[in-house]
Simulated assay, not measured.
Amino acid sequence: MDRKPARVLTVAGSDSGGGAGIQADLKTITVLGGFGMSVITALTAQNTLGVQGIFEVPIPFIEQQFDAVATDIGVDAAKTGMLVNAAVVRAVAAKIRQYHIEKLVVDPVMVAKGGALLIENDARENFISELVPLALVLTPNIPEAEALAGLSIRSVEDMKEAAMRIREMGVPNVIVKGGHLQGPATDIFFDGRRFYEFYSERIATKDSHGTGCTYSSAIATGLAVGKPLLEAVREAKAYVTEVIRYAWRIGQGHGPTNHAAPLLNALDRILPFLDQR
């Protein structure tokens, strides 16, 4: 195999529990056929019960990581996740501009599933003014969309209104994820002209840690291999649904999704035929 791999960069925090952040991103990118690289913005002491501590990576080292991978390996698409303070947001935005990264998925990670604040309040204005306009697509969940749009979201119509307001911040495409609402898991995609609704059944499980990270890195991988944005989103939604369906029951709290589920399920289908040979 001598084809060039799709190079996907994740700029995010590390999750020591392995379910979210850099770890979830790299698993997703690998399973979906990309080559994953990372710029770690923060280290967390974290497990299924929540975040116990955050260590902020110094800005010069964040910049050094970015330069190392971008100048040597190159970047076909990127995603951002946890950017803990204003200085990190500014530094990451500057590097994205420097290396002309256009296929950028921005996941506005603000609060962990356990409730821990993952971005300082003073970083939000910088996030909106400097990073959002660089994104090809923004992927907030309901609480994040409420914070960005300044409204309460209780329905699909509210999601659409939030998507319109967020798009006015300068990002061409917005996906408001509906995992926090009741009923089918409905995501709203808005490109400024029309709305697209992506549905999946709601899977009864508390083991969904890292789904936002997984979703955004799946979209970035789709973009990196050359898929149109709408197709990348559709396939990312299907992937997230499958990894939640086969989530791992690990730990005492919110367990992680099973990023390898598509591969493991494919093997289960193939192995019986191989055994018959």
Rank of each mutant, 00 (worst) to 15 (best):
M159D: 04
G226K: 07
K177S: 03
R154P: 00
S216C: 10
Y199N: 13
R194G: 14
A163M: 06
K177H: 03
E201S: 12
M159H: 00
S217I: 07
T214N: 09
A162L: 08
D158M: 08
N173F: 09
A163D: 00
E168Q: 14
A220K: 12
M164E: 15
K177I: 01
G192R: 08
R167Q: 15
R165M: 05
G170H: 13
R202W: 05
G192E: 08
G183N: 03
I219P: 02
F189H: 11
F190A: 04
F189C: 05
D187F: 06
S200V: 10
A162I: 09
Y196G: 06
A162E: 06
Y215W: 14
G178K: 02
S200P: 01
E201D: 14
K160V: 10
D158W: 01
A163R: 03
A163P: 01
Q182E: 15
A218P: 01
D187S: 10
F189R: 04
R165Q: 08
G179W: 05
M164H: 09
A185N: 13
P184N: 15
G183L: 03
S217Y: 08
K177V: 01
V171A: 12
T205H: 11
I166H: 04
M159W: 00
R193W: 03
V225P: 00
I188F: 01
S216H: 04
A162D: 06
R194I: 03
G192D: 07
L223W: 09
G178M: 02
V174S: 07
E161M: 10
A220F: 05
E197Y: 04
A185H: 04
G210P: 03
V225K: 15
Y215M: 15
S155I: 07
K177P: 00
F189Y: 15
E168N: 12
A224R: 02
A162Q: 06
D207R: 10
S200D: 14
G170F: 11
S208M: 11
S208L: 09
R167K: 14
I175R: 03
V156R: 13
Y199C: 07
M169N: 05
G222C: 09
L223I: 10
I166V: 10
E201P: 00
A204R: 14
T221Q: 11
R167Y: 11
A185E: 02
L181F: 03
R194C: 07
T221L: 10
G222E: 08
H209Q: 12
V171R: 11
D191W: 08
D191E: 10
K177D: 00
R202C: 04
E161I: 13
H209W: 04
V176H: 02
H209L: 13
E157P: 00
F195D: 08
G210F: 05
A163Y: 03
K160D: 07
S217Q: 09
I175K: 04
